[in-house]
């Protein structure tokens, strides 16, 4: 009964080398983390490798977890970093023209029109993005990193990060609208 096990007990068990607790930890968090892997990897084969490599790092570095923040967040960061490492080693980032100013979409908390979108649809849209757009979009829009941080993570300029984000947003917006049937509406002020 995995749900009955406290997170700290499982972590302690993993630290003492218990294979049973390691499996318990994996079974509990792998589904969420695999979704993250798919977001970054773009295909199931790559995502599977990221998940496997990420969990090995999680077990290896478990003693460094301080129990101060969210454990899930800590694991997620390891998975994201693993995906980034693989990305950096596999893809050559073709530079695009830097854009100094990117038009940020207006904050619009009312996203009810898109509430019907299934998570799987959103995931598929991200997975279909070209890698360079996908990485920047994930890091900026989902993880909340700033362009300066993203530029350091991916070894690109801030301008490139901004332009990649802009391009990713355009592509995703179109896909969302096509899927939901929402077209650009003229709103009378």
């Amino acid at each position: 009964m995995p749900g009955l096990h406290k997170e700290k007990d499982i972590i302690d068990g993993c630290l003492s080398g218990s294979r049973r607790d390691q499996e318990l930890l994996y079974r509990r968090y792998a589904p969420k983390l695999y979704a993250v892997c798919l977001q970054y990897a773009g295909n199931t084969e790559e995502a599977r490798d990221v998940l496997q490599e990420g969990f090995i790092k999680i077990f290896e570095n478990l003693s460094h977890f301080s129990h101060e923040g969210s454990f899930e967040g800590w694991m997620r960061r390891i998975i994201v970093n693993t995906a980034l490492e693989r990305y950096r080693s596999r893809y050559y980032l073709s530079r695009v023209d830097d854009i100094d100013e990117v038009t940020e979409p207006e904050a619009d908390p009312d996203t009810d029109d898109f509430a019907g979108l299934e998570a799987y649809d959103l995931l598929n849209m991200i997975m279909e993005l070209p890698p360079k757009y996908r990485m920047v979009f994930n890091l900026y829009a989902i993880e909340g990193y700033a362009h300066r941080e993203i530029s350091e993570m991916l070894g690109i300029s801030e301008g490139t990060s901004k332009s990649n984000l802009s391009r990713a947003r355009d592509i995703l917006q179109k896909k969302v609208m096509i899927l939901t049937g929402v077209t650009r509406r003229m709103v009378n002020v």
Partner: peptide
């Protein structure tokens, strides 16, 4: 033009997503 805040759509939509590996 009224467009969705695409960042929020994806952030919220994928927040609790789980996929069996």
């Amino acid at each position: 033009e009224r467009e969705p805040n695409i960042d929020i759509v994806f952030r919220n939509g994928l927040k609790n997503m789980e996929v069996l590996p």
